[in-house]
Amino acid sequence: MKLSEIIKELALTIQSAAGRLDREVTGGYASDLLSDVMAHSKEGDIWVTIQGHPNVVAIATLRDLAGIILANGRQPDAETVQRAEEEGVPILCTLLPTFDVVGRLHRLGIHGKD
């Protein structure tokens, strides 16, 4: 499923890299511990977290993630948005908590480890 379709289905707001929403999302991972995401996420994953500081962009870039969903009404720092624009990492926001974001992604056919 394309990132743009997920954005539509979950009514996410786009905070950065609006030109990079055409990418195929091949899986998902949810965690707020950066080393955990580093170790266990996969290329093409959508990452659900509540961390909005600039280091999330570094993780997404290093792991070639499809995008980041900031759950629970969290907003990215201004610097996070700037870094994400530079690196072409889509950051998407929602009021839904992580648990519900993941539930909805599952229903759309986006899974973790298959």
């Binding site: 511990l33 950066l34 080393s35 170790a39």
Partner: peptide, 15 residues
């Protein structure tokens, strides 16, 4: 609080 310090750094390196 930033999500660092999970105690996984050295083990991630080792792996």
């Amino acid at each position: 609080e930033m999500g660092f310090g999970a105690g996984m750094g050295l083990s991630n390196m080792k792996k």
